[in-house]
Simulated assay, not measured.
Amino acid sequence: MHKSNKVALLIASAIVTAAGPAHAQSSLTLYGILDVFAGYQSAKVGGKNTSLYVLGNNGELTSRWGLRGTEDLGGGYRTTFALENGFDPGTGKQQNPYRFFDRQAWIGVSAPYGEMRFGRQNTPMFAWSGNMDAFSAATYGSGYNNFANWLARVDNDISYISPKLANTQLELHYSVGGQPGTLAGNAVYQAGVQTVQGPVYLALAYLNAANATNTNRVQEIMAGGNVDYGWGKIYLGFFRANEVISATTGNALSNPAGKYDPAVGPVGNTRGNYHNTYSLSADYRFTPFLTVGAGYAYIKDSSSLSNDASQMSGIVNYDLSKGTRLYGVVSRLNNRNSAQFKMAGASITTGSFLTPDGGQSETAVQIGIRHLF
C-alpha cells in the first residue's frame, strides 16, 4: 500500500475512534402525544338550552410533538434542551399560530449542584397540577383545572432546578420583562418545592407577575398532593388567585403579564378580592389496566358578587398498552349568581366547549383515546 494511503487510513481511523465516544455522550429524543375525543355538552347559552356534539382534540393531554436532548460535557456537566409544538390532530393546525414552539423552547446546563434553564418554560404550577387531581388536571371533568386557571408557561424565563435531596426538589424562576428602565415591569417571579416521602407526594408553588408598567400584579399560590393507599390515590388540591387571573364572571383571562399572547393584556382587579379553589378526588385500580376515579371541586369568590361554582365528575381510564389509553368522563358543573365557569379541560380548541350563561349549569360527557410515542 502506498505510504500516503496508509497515512490517510490512520487519520480516518483516528477520526472514527474520536467520533465514537462523542456520539455516545449525546442523545436526541423525538416524542409526542395524540389525543382525540368525542364530546357532548349541554347548557343554557344566550337564553336557550343548547347542546354541542364535537370531535375534539386534547381532552386528557395536549397533542404535541417535541425534541429533547442532552450532551455530556464531562465532570458531571451536561447541556440540555427541549423544543415542543402543540397542535390539533383533527385539523393538523398549530394550537397557537403566532408561535411555532408554543409549549417549550429552552436550553440549559445541568451540573452536580442543579440545572439552569433559559427560554420558554412550563411553570411549576402547570407541571405539578396533575399530581393533585384524579383527572390529571385535564378533561371536561377536572374542576380543579376548570376553576384554578393557573399560568401554564412563561417566556424569557431563567430557572434553577435543584438536585433532589431526601426526595425533595426546589425550583426558582425569574422571567425577564424586557421593559426599558425597569426589571419589574412584565417580569414573572416563581418559586416551588415538591417532595415524595413514602406513599405521600406534596407540592407548594407561588407566582407573582407584573404588567408592563408594574402597576398591576397576578398573584397565585398552589398547594396539594396525593397519597397512595395501595389500590389507588387520594388527591387534594388548593389554588388561590387574585382577580387579575380569575375574573368574577368566570375564567376570563388568557394572558397574565402579557406572557401568553402578545396581543392580549391583563384585566383589571380589585385589591383584596380573591378566588379560592378547593379540590378533593380519588381513584381506584381494579386491575393494572383499569382505573376508576371521582372528584369534587369548589371555587369561592370573595368579592361582593359571590360568583361561586362547584363541579362533580367521574372518570374511567383503560390502558390498552403502555402508550395507548381509552378514557371516559361524565361531569356536572353548577354556576352560582352570575358566574360563567365552563368545562374546558386541557388545551381544548375553541368550538369544542360551551360557555354557559351567568349562573347556569352545564353537563358533559367525553370519550377519548390518547397515544404516547
Rank of each mutant, 00 (worst) to 15 (best):
M1A: 12
H2A: 11
L9C: 06
L10E: 10
A12W: 04
A14P: 05
T17A: 15
S26C: 05
S26N: 12
L34M: 15
L34A: 08
K44C: 01
G46N: 13
T50N: 04
T50Y: 06
V54Q: 05
E60G: 09
S63L: 10
E71H: 06
D72R: 07
G74M: 12
G75I: 13
Y77Q: 08
T80G: 05
G86H: 06
G90C: 06
T91Y: 11
Q95K: 05
Q95G: 12
N96T: 14
Y98H: 13
R103C: 10
R103D: 10
Q104H: 09
A105Y: 12
I107H: 04
I107W: 13
G108W: 13
V109F: 14
V109K: 04
A111G: 13
A111C: 07
R117L: 07
Q121H: 06
G130D: 03
N131V: 00
F135L: 05
T139V: 09
G141I: 09
G143T: 07
Y144F: 12
N145C: 07
N146C: 02
N156M: 06
D157W: 07
Y160P: 05
K164L: 11
K164N: 08
A166H: 14
T168M: 03
E171G: 13
S175H: 08
A184G: 14
G185K: 13
A187P: 00
Q190S: 07
V196H: 10
V200I: 04
Y201N: 05
L204N: 05
L207T: 15
L207V: 04
N208D: 08
A209S: 12
N211I: 08
A212R: 15
A212V: 05
V218E: 02
G230A: 14
G232A: 02
K233P: 02
N242T: 07
S246Y: 09
L253V: 08
L253M: 06
G265H: 13
P266T: 02
N269V: 06
H275G: 10
N276W: 03
L280D: 04
P288L: 14
F289G: 00
G295Y: 05
Y298T: 11
Y298K: 06
S304F: 11
L305I: 02
L305Q: 11
S306L: 06
A309D: 03
Q311F: 02
S313G: 10
S313V: 06
G314S: 02
Y318D: 04
Y327Q: 06
N334I: 12
F341E: 01
F341W: 02
K342N: 03
K342E: 07
A344G: 14
S352Q: 15
S352F: 01
T355W: 03
D357G: 12
G359C: 04
G359A: 01
T363S: 15
H371I: 03
F373H: 02
F373I: 08
